[in-house]
Amino acid sequence: MTDASMTGASMSDALLSAQGLSVARGGVRLLSGVSFELRPGDALVLRGPNGVGKTTLLRTLAGLQPPVAGTVTVCEGGLAYGGHADAVKSALTVTENLDFWAAVHGRSVDVPAALAALDLTHLRDRRAATLSAGQRRRLGLARMVLTGRPVWLLDEPTVSLDKGSVALFATALGAHLTAGGAAILATHIDLGLPDATCLDLAPSDAPTGPGDAFGDAFDDTFDGAFL
């Protein structure tokens, strides 16, 4: 499965599109009727109160979780997902972590570039266990840069990052977007992205999720007799 190099993806077709998507968590339908299209260079910011379903939506878009209804279509060589946890192995050093992910994605040439993008070069031989939360987060984001995949799905990317790191991340994201990539972020703070479109999520009022089959009452006669 070759990675669609970003510049190759033609400007017109969408990198990721969702039609009539509805997602559920623990049998309860959180969002329904979510539709959007992501073109190269687009950034979509998901906003909404805690627990409205931002993470669940991102996980459904990432394919970690099947949608209850609607479809998600992703371009070839698709997406990279950055969840709350940074996928960092504490026992390994910073470069070992990135070398591993580079090898998995078949792009080992970019490790120094990724390190530089998130200003981690001076930490390259430190064991990840000794990094601060902010540095670990930057290492997680460096992995995203490394994947070379057009669509980034980021869940609260800037949590535990200080001012400087947020700016660092914003520039890395900006570079990704200008190179024809796209991103969907669930975040509360403004990243200063000029053309970011916002998607405000509201709880769905549709009946319960996959447990629908159990939604309706039963009129049974038997147990009434002797239970």
């Binding site: 394919g63 969840g83 946890a85 940074d86 998995v104």
Partner: peptide
Amino acid sequence: WEDGSLEALATAPL
């Protein structure tokens, strides 16, 4: 599972 690597692996080309 705990440090998120499993999720990252699930969305990797592997």
